[in-house]
Amino acid sequence: MNNIYKTPITVVTGCLGSGKTTLLRKLLKKPELEKTAVIVNEFGQVGLDHHLLRKTDETTILLKGGCICCNNREDLENELKSLLNLDQKQEKFNRVIIETTGMADPAPILFTVLTNPILQHHFYIECVITTVDAKNGLLHIKNNPELLKQVTVADKIILTKTDITPPNQKEGVIEQLRIINPAVDIIEVVNGDADVGIIEANSNRPSIDSMFEKKDKKINKNHYSSDIQSISFTFNKPLDWTAFGLWLSALLHANGENIMRVKGLLDVGEKGPIVLNGVQHIIHPPDHLNEWPEGEKQSHLIFILRVIDPDSIYKSLKTFQNFLGSDFELLELNKAL
């Protein structure tokens, strides 16, 4: 349960040619990342040179009756287990970076690490990074449904090739990414020159704040992601955590495949808030913080949905909380369509 004793994992995803390897190559040269193990799925044009580098071939074990997100990545399981062996024998490392292929869905990676009986006690997913090519980003989003998934799952988006992109085109890409995932941090990086901190999770607070800065509602005119919608709530009363857990677990059981992302900072009447982070059927172990981050004490909750109407989520949450006797007051409701 306590992440202090576990090794953090950073997942790097992004389209083919969007700059994943360039970013990693620069980062891995830094002395701070000397004790980082790297797992790659393919060797791209730009080679990686690192002493703790491993290559796997993507093999996904389809679990019986499982949906697309609840699949086990056996290759990763084996690789992480052998890294664990290595760590306990000789070569100590303090972080793992997994670079996926351009086509990979990050959800099975999260599923593997969070549910494997061994791995869940030794590793945790700290951060999912998606690289997006600023020059061809819109085209990629349009043509690659995988990228859409990678963007919704991401905690951080690294916007690459901004030096060769006209400013208005860059703005267009950023705007589109914000519509798809309002709770994401977008960082511009040229030639992979990024700060080491980029692979670590910052506290969830800034990203949740940033989504509330964008108060102006945007209409999504692009046909290619029109089925992705998001809705965010702000409450000022504590929620009943048991009732909320009941509602969310039932919701995810019935509709998990279409709930691309849940993210929230919830006041449940404890001293600190609960940080909630979920991807489809997979929920990260909720983090109970000891105290509130600076600022006011309010619960924020955001859903990124596919196909489902955001209004129905609102109606359902409201009805359930009323019915289960923990009324909440909704301060704000933002919908990005």
Binding site: W247, A250, L251, H253, A254, N255, S312
Partner: peptide, 24 residues
């Protein structure tokens, strides 16, 4: 709770959906 909804679906033959307008 994870197995509750799964088991309920098994017994009922359909999943309990909190978005179901009839239930709401």
């Amino acid at each position: 709770l994870g197995t509750l909804w799964y088991t309920a679906e098994k017994i009922l033959g359909y999943a309990i959906d909190p978005l179901d307008p009839y239930l709401l």
